[in-house]
Each structure stands twice: as C-alpha cells, then as structure tokens.
Amino acid sequence: MKKIFALIPVFCLFSVLAFGQWVNDKGHSRVAFIVQHHGISEVDGFFKKYEATLTAAKDDLSDAVFEMTIETASLNTELEMRDNHLRSPDIFDVQKFPTITFKSTSFKKKKKNLYTMTGNLTIKGITKPLTLEVTMNGPVENPNKNAKNIQVGIKALGKIKRSEFTVGQNLTTAFVSDEIQLRITGEFNKALPKN
C-alpha cells in the first residue's frame, strides 16, 4: 500500500506531462514586430527561428503557461542591409545576446475568448515585465479528419520600449520609434499521450 501511495505523485506528474503539453505548429505561427520609421510609416519584421511551448493542466487552458525562446540572428525585415545592422552591436548584438526569452507568470480571462497574459521578457540580458492582450480560439477538434487532434489558436498583442532594453541606444526616435509593437500569432496542437 505504501508503494502505491508513493507512486501517486509520479503518476500525477506523468499525467501533466503527457496530457498538458501543447506543440507549436510553426507553419501557422509568427513572431512579428512593428516600428515607426521617420515618424511617417511603419516597418515590420519577424523572427524565423524560435521555440514556443504551451503547458496547461486544465482542458480549458485557464492555467496556461507560455514560454518562448527566440534566436535574435534569425530576424528578417526583408532588407539585408537593415537586417545586418539590426544584428550588429549597435542594435541587438546577436553574437553577445543570441536569444530573447519570455515566460508567462499569469494568464487571466477577461471575457469570452479574451485574456490578459503577463510575464517576464528578457532582451540583451535585461528582464522587464510584459503584458500581452491575448485572443484565444479553441480548443477545438482539428477539422482535418486524418489529424485527429485538438488545436488552439492564439493572437497576442503588446508594446515595449526598446530603450528599456538598450536596443539601438544611438538610434534617435526621429529615425525609429522607441515604442515597438509586438504581434505573436500561433497554433498549438495538444500532444497525444505516448503508448
């Protein structure tokens, strides 16, 4: 009997790992940013390489925890000269700071499918709190009958100030705005239990 009780915590942990993990579908996801240029237009870009995880013990994902690691060198604004400058020590300094990380600390429902997510964002070794407004669609069953899995879609919007992370300290706001808009979209598939 003692052995059975001793195994209960292990079983609970296995249940969370097996049924609480959601896998990011990168083919239907994007980590994007938007800045204002010369005060008259917007330039947007995205990161090609990142890892994102979603973990939740509850079926409605009300206790969801999001984690993301982004490779800074994978940024793309579709202009090579600008991208090389963004990777340089002047801006992101990708050699010294190869990743950007985020981990949520709170995920609260506002109404219907709208949530407020807070967490810690680290850029260039500096960690600041970040609040994102999230629209979550699902969970729903994949309409593809061959897939037989459960999906959820998210859209997270937020803003940061690059100056708070020492990004482009020598770059005046007359050229590029201090405020950077974030737009993160993605699909996650519920991990199937291993046989």
Rank of each mutant, 00 (worst) to 15 (best):
I126E: 07
T99Q: 13
K110S: 06
L61I: 10
F11K: 06
K155I: 14
F97R: 02
E164V: 07
T173V: 11
L192A: 15
F19T: 08
T118C: 04
G158E: 01
L75T: 06
S74E: 12
A64C: 14
L79C: 02
E164D: 15
V140W: 03
T118Y: 03
K194E: 14
G45P: 06
V43H: 05
T55P: 00
K109Y: 09
T122G: 06
L132Q: 03
K49W: 00
V35M: 04
E133L: 12
T173K: 10
D25C: 04
A64T: 11
F11H: 03
G168M: 10
P9F: 07
I184M: 04
F165V: 10
G168Y: 09
F97T: 00
I70P: 03
F14V: 13
K3H: 06
L114I: 11
A57T: 15
S88Y: 00
E51S: 05
L7W: 07
R30H: 08
G168Q: 08
K148W: 10
T173C: 08
V23W: 05
R82M: 03
I184G: 02
T135H: 08
D63Y: 11
F19S: 02
Q21S: 05
Q95H: 06
G20Q: 01
G39C: 05
N144M: 13
K3I: 03
K26P: 07
A18G: 00
K109W: 11
G39Y: 04
A147I: 07
M1R: 12
M81Y: 04
Y115L: 01
A56V: 05
T53C: 06
L13F: 12
A156Q: 13
I123M: 11
S15N: 12
T135S: 15
H85Q: 02
N84C: 01
E78F: 13
N137T: 12
K155C: 09
D93R: 01
D60N: 15
A191V: 08
